[in-house]
């Protein structure tokens, strides 16, 4: 809810509130989210520190947020909001920050693999309507040039009947293409 006595808040925190309804000023820095977060040790700024940086609104801090690893390492496991005493809904806030980070070309280099994987995943869906795992792995691994890691798993997955050689195609692929055109493509290209 906006306060009629205030002018529009153009800080990153203000944008977060406008687009997601999440009000970072509610956070009183107890750190319960960071304590429960399964990947806080992988993050450069644990969730509560990320929020602190948004609270100050200093350009330096906002820049750090958009360029952080943290926003890409979030697994959206929702533990933070499940335990937050002030109900600061961190996951949608992070979703928004990821979008901003990509839009402004500020995504952290360490997140390359994660972004590549997401893109490969969506690419697969866009073409076939469903996930084509074999295609995904080939696509992702060729994008990340990291062929070794999962090639080990593939043959045994195949042997156990878990990998299909050919993709499953849905009938109305035009509809899927149209959905991608009107959403992702529309904004990012």
């Amino acid at each position: 809810m906006s306060n009629p006595h205030h002018t529009e808040d153009n800080s990153l925190a203000g944008k977060v509130q406008k687009h997601t309804g999440v009000k970072v000023s509610r956070c009183y820095q107890c750190g319960k989210c960071s304590a429960g977060c399964p990947v806080s040790s992988d993050m450069d700024f644990p969730p509560s520190l990320l929020i602190r940086k948004l609270q100050t609104g200093f350009p330096k801090h906002e820049e750090e947020v958009l360029r952080s690893k943290s926003i890409w390492f979030c697994l959206t496991c929702e533990m933070c909001i499940a335990r937050c005493p002030m109900e600061v809904d961190i996951p949608p806030m992070i979703d928004y920050l990821r979008g901003e980070s990509m839009r402004l070309n500020k995504a952290n280099p360490a997140a390359k693999n994660i972004i590549r994987f997401h893109k490969a995943f969506l690419n697969s869906i866009q073409k076939t309507g469903r996930l084509y795992e074999m295609g995904l792995i080939v696509d992702y691994k060729s994008r990340s040039l990291n062929m070794v890691q999962d090639v080990v798993l593939a043959p045994s997955m195949f042997a156990k009947g878990k990998l299909k050689i050919l993709p499953e195609l849905i009938k109305d692929r035009k509809n899927i293409k149209q959905i991608f055109q009107k959403t992702l493509k529309n904004k990012h290209k």
Binding site: K32, S34, A35, G36, S40, P46, S48, L49
Partner: peptide, 13 residues
């Protein structure tokens, strides 16, 4: 007991 130390870079304790 899993908590955090917000005076120590918000590290897990």
């Amino acid at each position: 007991v899993i908590g955090t130390d917000t005076l120590m870079n918000h590290e897990t304790v």
